[in-house]
């Protein structure tokens, strides 16, 4: 059998997904035995022009991580979609927007004003901003266009498989790699390397009746290790989040923040989370409810931590 042709790319991302692939450790040699890698900027020296020269569908599988933040990300997404038989949205940024997607609280100007002007460590009295085109004595330099709104990969090009996680856990990556090599992938459009049910199903903590009279913030308490975090008043996104991670954060005594995205039947992870939190508030009058809700400081940044671009509202109105 001919070796698989593999491409890995990152758009707006942190590189943690690349490290998650490397965390396969010695199994990476099995990957190398089954596949040749044709593009992987973090690890190998291929240029964009090499990719442009491939014929369409040259690549068998493209693992694309990162959100689409600017015109370069969009260009590479479209290029690699055309050159690849199978496109995999790899990691939470590509699947849902991820942490870079939180930038949808602002627009292009809002981000630029802060980054290139207001930050205490910035001295930019000339008000210099990135330009898409700039003429220097030797010629013209170009930069990508920075969008107002961060997009997911799926909002940019058709995606065959979604492998979420921030980053995806290694054993799930390995399972998917094996499925790819064996040609045993599920129908296109599926999520892979995930559990069917929520993080709560994987969470080993004891769950009893959930009635919360006061929410606490993670720095205010050391949670009991055996009892459901929500029952202890900590906002935990487990109920609205797809499992597959093995409840890693919860097992480290930290509440879930939803990186595996919504479960199969949920449209909007944040709305579902909001609903789950509201249903455990132990109050039966408006003033009592308000008192408890006031303790939840950042619903948007907590319930949409990894999925603002993938949400129904997509972004904040500015």
């Amino acid at each position: 059998m001919a070796k698989l042709k593999l491409a890995l790319y990152w758009a707006a991302t942190c590189g943690g997904c690349e490290v998650a692939v490397l965390d396969l450790n010695e199994k990476i040699l099995d990957v190398a035995a089954a596949a040749d890698i044709y593009l992987w900027p973090v690890a190998m020296d291929y240029k964009y022009k090499d990719a442009e020269a491939w014929h369409d569908k040259f690549i068998d599988v493209c693992l694309f991580n990162g959100a689409i933040r600017n015109s370069e990300g969009e260009h590479l997404a479209k290029l690699l979609r055309a050159k690849s038989k199978v496109m995999v949205a790899f990691g939470s940024c590509a699947c849902f927007g991820g942490i870079p997607g939180l930038a949808n609280v602002a627009d292009r100007e809002g981000v630029f004003a802060r980054v290139y002007g207001e930050t205490p460590s910035t001295d930019n009295s000339d008000g210099t901003r990135p330009q898409t085109s700039f003429t220097v004595p030797e010629g013209e330099l170009t930069l990508p266009y920075f969008y107002d709104t961060v997009k997911t990969l799926g909002q940019t090009v058709p995606v065959d498989y979604f492998l979420p996680g921030c980053p995806p856990v290694t054993k799930q990556i390995w399972a998917v790699v094996q499925a790819i090599v064996a040609g045993q992938l599920p129908p296109p459009g599926s999520f892979v390397g995930v559990a069917e049910k929520s993080v709560c199903e994987e969470c080993p903590r004891v769950k009893e009746e959930k009635k919360v009279t006061a929410f606490v913030r993670p720095h205010q308490v050391i949670p009991q290790p055996e009892k459901c975090l929500l029952e202890q008043g900590l906002i935990c996104c487990g109920p609205a989040t797809r499992g597959g991670c093995g409840a890693q954060c919860v097992n480290a005594n930290m509440p879930c923040r939803g990186c595996y995205g919504p479960t199969e039947r949920v449209t909007d992870q944040g709305a579902k989370m909001l609903s789950a939190i509201a249903s455990i508030i132990d109050a039966t009058d408006e003033a009592g409810v308000k008192k408890v809700v006031d303790q939840i400081v950042d619903p948007l940044g907590t319930f949409y931590r990894f999925g603002l671009p993938n949400s129904l509202l997509t972004r904040v109105r500015v």
């Binding site: 942190c14 930038a103 602002a106 802060r114 913030r217 993670p218 940044g301």
Partner: peptide, 29 residues
């Protein structure tokens, strides 16, 4: 550097105790 994500902007408004779970995504390598 053709890449910017704007952590400086979207970390604003987030609870301070959540930042240890946001800022590691500046660089995951």
């Amino acid at each position: 550097v053709p890449e910017l994500r704007g952590f400086e902007r979207f970390c604003e408004g987030r609870p301070v105790e959540e930042l240890p779970r946001i800022t590691p995504r500046i660089c995951g390598v």
